[in-house]
Design a protein around this nucleic acid. Structure first.
Lengths: 229, 229
DNA sequence: GTTGTCATCATTGTCGACAATTAGTCCTGT
DNA sequence: ACAGGACTAATTGTCGACAATGATGACAAC
């Protein structure tokens, strides 16, 4: 069972130091080890990972491009604090992009990949009884499903945008706030509908269902945010 | 009249050297000054811009994140050679993203911005007679229109993805191959339809029209590519 | 003649040090 | 007491040099 839905296989042994520390600090940021909004000191981080400032600066540049840190010239880098509006913006983009991914996946996904997708859903269905299922599903299982659909599109740039940028932001948000909603059961049902549409090679329906699914998730977040204040 | 449709205003005076050279080499790549597929030598480029390798490497990292250059560890960086398939992939993403942008723009764009948009189209309509109009429209005017719609969405991340990544790739492709199609007149008409839908605050129609417009552009490219071989 | 191996070379990756800009603080004058 | 300015300190931006990895060529063996 895959645990981290990332495109590049997070080798931890990518010959270059800058790439490795990029993955490490990204994980640290996403999982909240480096708190959101905190200022990042280059010498401190460099010492923490036992490297020089050169590779660390390159890693920071990559993190800046993935929108996980903000940099202002001569002032330093800060971990982003994703506001509520920005979180909703991400869901809008996911609706458009993953809807398209579902459409293409319905047309181009291999039969074997579709079978695997159904296996995953079957597994989720069986695990509903688990005590920590809701937690697991909301933290990893949900993204695993979306990850496979996106992969099924075969559009490399689409995969890149979603898996290397947006999914990390979604995970970061989940690690910050508990994201305790009762939508897990509904989400699983919506997943099954999307998978059925893909299995029937109905691209238009798959896109429509996927968009409705993500829109429902966004609305649930909107409600939660509205009720919180 | 704006000539380069980029999000950050390409200041040429962003206090840090790495950022400035990033913009310069990006322009050089997009406009073909540095040919596609060519290997990039760090010492050579550093000398060319009169800087050291440190800032240049950071600029390369940013270029790598925007998918304009490919890097392989210990092997160097190469300017990407966007294959036909990758170009079509970009149009698929544009269809999804700009369709959503048009929908939101129809809901949230200010009346003044809509008036400006119509002015731009009116200007394009008047310039149809110009001898070099087809060239201008295909090189800049078309992107100007799309740029404004995307801006109208107000979704910062959406704006970032489209203006800082995809549009540069589209421009790069246009600078490489002549992109001489007779779709200019049709495209202008489709633009007007989209603008009308936005003016009537019909988000669903605006999205549908925008998607059809971009799909038509993609199909025109497909036909051209098929006829070429 | 072909192929395998080795040595040289160029290029990339990494590091430590210097220069420049910013933030904070303390002092002074009104 | 408060405002303004200058000084100090820390952090970032930049540079040149060293180490390591991959490529190119020649030479020798089969």
């Amino acid at each position: 069972m895959m645990t981290t839905a990332t495109a590049e296989s997070l080798d931890e042994e990518t010959s270059t130091i800058a790439d490795r520390v990029f993955g490490q600090v990204r994980q640290a940021i996403v999982e909240g080890e480096i708190p959101a909004g905190s200022k990042i000191s280059e010498p401190a981080l460099a010492a923490r990972y036992g490297i020089s400032r050169g590779p660390l600066r390159e890693a920071m540049r990559r993190l800046e491009s993935t929108n996980l840190v903000e940099r202002r010239p001569n002032l330093g880098a800060r971990v982003i604090t994703l506001s509520n509006d920005e979180l909703l913006e991400i869901y809008v983009i996911r609706e458009a992009l993953e809807g398209m991914a579902a459409r293409i996946a319905a047309e181009r996904m291999s039969d074997a990949a579709i079978a695997d997708l159904k296996d995953l859903l079957e597994q989720h269905r069986r695990e509903v009884a688990r005590a920590d299922w809701q937690t697991y599903f909301q933290e990893e299982g949900d993204l695993d499903f979306h990850f496979r659909i996106v992969q099924g599109s075969g559009n490399r740039r689409l995969i890149d945008i979603l898996c290397n940028d947006l999914y990390h932001l979604a995970r970061m948000y989940r690690c910050q706030f508990g994201m305790k909603s009762d939508r897990a059961a509904d989400a699983l049902k919506e997943h099954e509908l999307v998978a059925d549409a893909i299995a029937e090679r109905d691209g238009e329906l798959a896109e429509w269902l996927m968009r409705r699914h993500i829109r429902a998730s966004r609305r649930a977040i909107e409600r939660r945010l509205a009720g919180e204040r």
